[in-house]
Amino acid sequence: MKTSTLFLSLAITCLGASAWAYTPAPVTGGGTISGTIRFTGAVPAAPRLAVTKDPQVCGSDKADESLVVAPSKGLANAIVFLDKIDHGKPLTVGKAELDNTTCRYEPHVQAFAVGTELHVKNNDAVLHNTHIRLPTSDVFNYALPEKGQAISKKVTRTGLMKVGCDAGHTWMNAWIAVFDHPYFAVTDKEGHFALHDVPPGEYALLYWHEKLGKATQKVTVAAGGTVDASHAFK
């Protein structure tokens, strides 16, 4: 039973992978997709998150980071990526960091390529556990009882992952998106993003934000050209 389930999931994974498996190939005449993501609606006043544990380390309350909008209406922490791209520049597999600092995750939203080594660090003198999960399963759940302790782990799964702390710090949350291709970006404070070296062609560009949901747009990249793919969440 277990074995057959394993094989089934393997088969599904392979099937899914073969449907839009990403193959690195030299890119000639690559273009750029860039733009700004804005939030044009009224930003609701977000009450600060109450700190209910370890106030001597965590402080009395924390900012709600689920919707961060610049005065220019630029939307931070949105993820932009090409949907189901199957070839292009090689993946950059490097190192990523996730810090627990004064009972807050830094960065709040990040994206990296599969195979990246994630360096999880605790800068607080309390127990944090960094529990990273996909919708139906755990990616990992490490305890960091010591100040200054860090654990490095290669992330071998893809998808959108939610990060939380079970050690009583219920307000702590962060997002990690792991891709099997290199065409993704997280918007900066002003909502800017850019995807470089995109092979010429037509793509579906996806925008995601933890509170505003997702949106999609068709983009056509001409050889050597730059496409403005700005988007406004309302």
Binding site: I12, P135, T136, S137, G159, W208
Partner: peptide, 16 residues
């Protein structure tokens, strides 16, 4: 929106 609608867009592996 962050929970339900968008999870699948990221093509998480072998998750439903």
């Amino acid at each position: 929106a962050g929970d339900a609608a968008a999870w699948d867009s990221f093509g998480g592996d072998a998750d439903a």
